[in-house]
Amino acid sequence: MIAFIIRRLIFMVPTLFVVIAVTFMLMHAAPGGPFDREQQLTPEAEAELNIHYGLNKPLVSQFTQYLGGVLHGDFGPSFRYKEYSVRDLIGQGLPVSAQLGIQALMLALIFGISIGLYAGYNRNKFSDSIIMGFAMIGIAVPNFVVAPMLALVFAVWLHWLPVSGLDAPGAMILPTISLVLPQIAAVARLTRGSVIEVLQQNYIRTARAKAMPTHVILLRHALKPSLMPIVSYLGPAAANLLTGSVVIEVIFGLPGIGRYFVQGALNRDYTLVLGVIIVYATLLIVLNLLADLIYSWLDPRLRMS
């Protein structure tokens, strides 16, 4: 088990290195510099800017310098927001994005598992078909379509919740709901499938034969083994939530790292985009590792080997 964790931790290093190297090289291979869109710069001024940001040095030394900075948590200055460093911007945005993501993940698990359990137990009944129909819609309708509609109904028409920003109370409610709906649908579908499989096992039949009440069978015997696919879905779910939060933050004007990322991409703010990608990649790798650990901890067959 410990060997497994160490092996995975060591495996993280080349992955992150590849991420940083590839993004860095691609950024610098891109045509056009970060200062292209400002008012016509004189060649001297541009050369001065390049010297100021170290862009005149050879690529390899720029890279090693950057890598050294990243190891110390320094992502360099933002090319656009002149008075901020990328680290400041990420530090400001991360708590907002993290709150959004953690809330959404919790809700996705709670609602997704309950709904999936119910649908799986009532397999092929009317209520199951209805639920699974909705789940399919939840997966197929992208959240950038759902979010504006929710904003229209609950913010513009009913005035229950704020349209955008972070200051008003309840500001996180609409973004969280928009972000979580597709994930609830995905978790519910997964849970339903595995519950159906588990309910066909012999030990469930034994429990039924012993006339155990339904809730005991479902919660005591069927739930735990049904959760295995959900645990392995945690990694992709985290990726989906991170991706989703980019667009949700833009729609609801939340100052999270997703919005900085999009602005960085629109403004060709290389250091900002690089920094956010590194943060995202690290998060994803760590979350995937956690999911794998939980999985091997839950499955005794894996624990043995």
Binding site: M27, A265, V276, L284
Partner: peptide, 17 residues
């Protein structure tokens, strides 16, 4: 290794490039 990379972010990176 490539699987661990966040797909959508690589795509956004491509648009920058």
């Amino acid at each position: 290794v490539l699987y661990a990379l966040p797909f959508m972010f690589i795509v956004i990176l491509l648009t920058v490039i």
